[in-house]
Design a protein around this nucleic acid. Sequence first.
DNA 1: TTCCAGGCGTATC
DNA 2: GATACGCATGGA
Length: 269
Amino acid sequence: MDIIANGKDIILHQPDFDLDMTLDCGQAFRWERLSPVVYTGFAGKRPLTIEQRDDSTFVFKDTSMDDMAFWADYFDLERDYGSIKERFSEDEVLSRACKYGHGIRILKQDREETLLSFIISQNNNIPRIKLIISRLCALYGGFPTACEMRDADEDTLAPLKAGFRTRYLLDCIRRINSGETELDAISLMDSESAAKELMKIKGVGAKVAACTLLFGFQRLEVCPVDVWIRRVLEKCYPNGLPPCTKDFEGIAQQYLFYYFRGRDEELTP
DNA sequence: TTCCAGGCGTATC
DNA sequence: GATACGCATGGA
């Protein structure tokens, strides 16, 4: 990581990082692509506009050094994805996926936002997930905390058009506010117990729990299995992911998801 | 019109 | 414990 202040902006030189790949690979739903090289969005209530100048040069617009410390953490800039990709490349399919999505990084997102977002994601497509979340943010003026939604009911959330997921959101909000679900406590559990605890929330099954742990709790060993990854596993890894993914199955999963999503012809026998 | 989407709850066996 | 089916919504 190489950071230089430049007036109100920060210039970052960083390998293994690409905005399109990281912000549009289905892990975060609140980044808007203003142009092929400029994204704007939020982490929590903190705004950012970021521009990619070339393979490894990024401009964080109107960003202080203090803010930059936050963003460096959010974008997981300290982690050496190069060495992780090198390990993964022992495997032929993963090698291709890593080349294709070479600039993917796993974001360190807010826990509540990740949990609520992936409750919305179930049996849904990415454009509509983004739409529902944007309507939620419009309703509350930014992505709301569970506390801010404590008085919400079916009618409050009707404008989201989230369908059957609305009552799942409400159960999640209720449980967090009542203390039945404690994200701080969950963050201290091993991943298996944490998933089990998250799954006490209506609408949270194995997949949503796994996404929450991977993207919201930095459990990089947790591998969410959705319809796409299920197809990849059936076609390429009938005996499970290879040993070179150990401890980072979640990251491997994300390279595979980005590479195979939408490629029906590569996944149908 | 029918099928599908970063699934899950419920009924049934 | 495994499997089958319904579920809101909207784009293809």
